[in-house]
Write a protein that binds this DNA or RNA. Structure first.
Lengths: 149, 149
DNA sequence: TTCATTTTGGTCAAAGAAAGTCAAAATTCA
DNA sequence: TGAATTTTGACTTTCTTTGACCAAAATGAA
């Protein structure tokens, strides 16, 4: 077990204690674990990605920080299920149907549903080449859902 | 948390109390927070800009002052303003800044803001050719906002 | 009135304080 | 062994703090 796992473990415990949100300083943490600061970035991107249910925000400069938020898991399963069922390409009618469903289920808010649909509509993707529109639509759709988890 | 944040916090509280307008003296404030006067200018420009919903006026000389006014614009106007200010192409950092602002202003919900950002992120647009990404990002961003108005 | 002085606030650039990126080197795993 | 993962560190970017110098408004003396 490497140092990355140690750091990840430490953060997860701290997240338990602090009930889901945690703010820390990159260099502090690096010192505590005796590693270079950039290793913290590595840990963030490999173990605390949105796909894994975390949101990581940060700020540079004096008084900078890294904030990690664990998102709740209830609708996570539902959303994950939907995400995993999506293929590499997606047409607009299907997108509409899926969004409608998620809203009806209460998995996402009406506002988020609308936002989602306007992001994958024809007007939004008009600058994209025809042949890759389906793929882009699928990517956008997935990304939005992933980040909503 | 740095000194700039302290100062900003102090001002915001004072604004609450005084119901939206506040007049103060640069050197007073600087003394109170034990910093150089120009730091006040820094705080003004980074935390009380018009984009963030404030008007800052000032006057030099004897009896000089800095007046901060919090302005409340209705969300429709604000959204329209933002939409119209967008160009044909948009980079990710700018998108982030704008979204953050809209959320802070209460013009869109946090959820919608997140949704918006994940829709224009790199992962969402990876299937789009590099050279048209900026354009697609701008289109998506605009469409989402338009539908949120 | 006119002009010098004083009292404010403004600008800008340099220095400092975090965090981010990227790719090479090291290590681990299949 | 070869590929994937992890560890490092040089370099970059962003945000903050500080200070030297500038500009404008008020005030009072000539």
């Amino acid at each position: 077990m490497g140092i990355s796992d140690l750091i990840a473990g430490f953060i997860q415990e701290a997240l338990e204690d602090s009930d889901g949100v945690l703010e820390l300083q990159r260099s502090d943490l690096a010192q505590r674990f005796n590693c270079v600061p950039s290793q913290i970035n590595y840990v963030m991107s490999t173990r605390f990605s949105p796909e894994q249910g975390y949101i990581v925000e940060s700020r540079r400069g004096g008084g900078g920080y890294i904030r990690i938020t664990r998102v709740r898991v209830d609708r996570e399963t539902l959303l994950m299920h939907v995400i995993n069922s999506l293929g590499d390409t997606l047409d607009l009618p299907s997108a509409r149907a899926i969004a409608r469903n998620l809203v009806d289920n209460g998995a996402i808010s009406l506002e988020a549903g609308r936002t989602l649909l306007s992001a994958v509509g024809d007007a939004a993707l008009r600058a994209a080449p025809r042949e890759s529109r389906g793929a882009i639509r699928a990517d956008v759709f997935k990304q939005v859902l992933i980040h909503l988890v």
